[in-house]
Amino acid sequence: MSDQNETARMPVNWDATLAFWLLRGWLGLRAIVTGLEKYAAIGKVMKPWVDPTTGQPDPNGAMIEATQKIYSLTNYAAIPQSLQDKFASEPLLPAALLKPFYIGLGPALILLGVMLWVGIGTRISLFAQGIIYIALTAGLILIKADDGVAWLAIHVALIAVALTLAKHNKLCILKKW
């Protein structure tokens, strides 16, 4: 008997369904926005200084530097360089794996988040997110970033709960996986 059939015959448990939707929303949002942020950079732009008395731009061409957040593929950075440098000096983290991990991290988070929100491969998405957070945890343990370890542990716990509630999912494109 397939899991799908079993789920279909279950009476609707709206408490569990709503609980899952909350986790689905939060974990999807967390993954998508985290992935998008890896393409963001704070850039500096010049704009005219505006005289507060007149409300007019300075006639002599005075400009002020303002910061602006810009999203671009060229801005992509999986994790901050300082963190990459620390991971690179850890003998237990093989350099051959770090580079592909960095390349794939941002796109993977966005893809997995979208999958979870849309409802395609919900369990696969949750499990893959869990693996990513565990991989990141390994690095943080090695560099003794205990705050980060605890922070990721909460993510993994939420994912685990979401997985146990996945059978109560409604409103998805593919119930399987």
Partner: peptide, 12 residues
């Protein structure tokens, strides 16, 4: 001083 300009020094 928050003011800057992105021109050659003699340009203005």
């Amino acid at each position: 001083l928050p003011i800057s300009f992105n021109k050659a020094i003699h340009q203005p």
